[in-house]
Amino acid sequence: MTTARIDVHQHLVPQDYAQWLGAKGITAAGGRPLPEWSPESALALMDRYSIAAAILSLSTPGTHLGDDADARTWARRVNETAADLVRDHPDRFGLFATVPLPDIEGAVCEISYAYDDLDADGVVLLANSHGRYLGDPSLDPVMADLDRRAAVVFVHPSDLPGPTVPGIPPFAADFLLDTTRAATNLVMHDVPRRYPNIRFILSHAGGFVPYASHRIAAAIVAETGRNPAECLEDLRGFFFDTALSGSPAALPSLLAFAEPGHVLFGTDWPFAPEPGVAYFTGQLDTYPGLDRVGRAGIDRGNALELFPRLAKVV
């Protein structure tokens, strides 16, 4: 087992942000109560699971609850909180900056601040923002700015723009569909080819993308007339994390589909509680379909291609 994992899917939940959500009547995300979080508890968890560094991101619902001004204010506050933590622990934490989509102007402004002033490692974008999915042409100004910066973009699911099914919490199935919709829409609108410098990471092994990739490609071909091999190439070109997906059911499809070097370690802590982290990390550690080189790539090496600064500190 490696002693220097890099976790690309770990969240922060600042106390003031959680209190703000609570004042808005939001006490859960994805069907799970907002978890307790602190830098100290994050570091302790990381030490228990051989995680040398974690790239922190804000989970759904993000900061845009309907008001642009509020969304900009809270995106800035969360990003500055996370940046302070990275400065205090540069060898343990990184930052995926949050942006207030669907506010395009606010998002571009926060991307500039995150990169130019906070030295962010990348940006987290929700798969959909109030029903507007990544890939929507209205988001092209954001994509153009991210492309200019050769950004790493972590795509995290949000609530589907529709009702939930009683008894089925969103994190169990809806989140996987949300990520799949975003990936499909990105390829449908040719974003990976129009903005080739962006490196997208799809959370939770890409949702249903690896398993349904040929079916998705067929749908894109029917809609756009594009070459099916090109569509599959674009889908395979995403990066994928293993959060809640290091199982003997999910890993064969993911590893058979993703480009070599495009699978990254993730936990989804603290929204995934520690027993979940233990279970899926343990399944990944004992999966017989990975050799030593492949396992080391997932644990650390593949992430270093995206975040080379961590090679010096972990």
Rank of each mutant, 00 (worst) to 15 (best):
A42T: 14
A44Y: 00
A44K: 12
L45Y: 02
L45W: 00
Y49W: 11
Y49N: 15
Y49T: 10
S50Q: 13
I51H: 00
A53H: 03
A54M: 12
L56C: 08
S57E: 00
S57G: 11
L58K: 09
S59Y: 04
T60K: 04
G62H: 10
G62V: 04
G62S: 13
H64K: 00
H64E: 06
L65A: 10
G66H: 09
D68W: 04
A69T: 15
D70K: 00
A71P: 08
A71W: 14
W74P: 06
R76K: 15
R76A: 14
R77A: 09
V78H: 04
N79G: 08
E80F: 05
E80W: 04
A82Y: 01
A82T: 15
A83E: 03
D84R: 15
D84C: 07
D84F: 01
L85H: 12
R87E: 12
R87K: 13
D88W: 05
D88H: 14
D91I: 03
F93R: 03
A97E: 01
T98C: 07
T98Y: 01
V99H: 02
V99F: 00
P100I: 14
D103W: 06
E105C: 02
E105A: 15
E105R: 12
G106L: 08
G106Q: 11
V108T: 13
C109N: 12
E110T: 12
E110H: 14
E110Q: 15
I111M: 07
S112N: 12
S112I: 12
S112M: 04
D116A: 13
D117K: 14
L118N: 10
D119S: 15
A120E: 03
A120C: 05
D121S: 13
D121K: 05
V123W: 01
V123F: 01
L126K: 03
L126G: 06
L126E: 00
L126F: 14
A127G: 05
N128K: 01
N128R: 04
N128H: 07
H130Q: 11
H130A: 13
H130V: 14
H130E: 10
R132E: 07
R132L: 08
L134D: 05
G135Y: 04
D136I: 08
D140L: 09
D140S: 10
P141F: 06
M143C: 11
A144T: 11
D145W: 02
D145P: 01
D145K: 09
L146E: 06
D147T: 10
D147V: 13
R148M: 08
R148Q: 12
R149Y: 03
R149A: 02
R149I: 04
A150N: 09
A150S: 14
A151C: 00
A151T: 00
A151G: 02
V152W: 06
V153S: 00
V153Y: 04
F154N: 05
F154R: 00
H156Y: 09
H156F: 10
S158R: 07
P161Q: 02
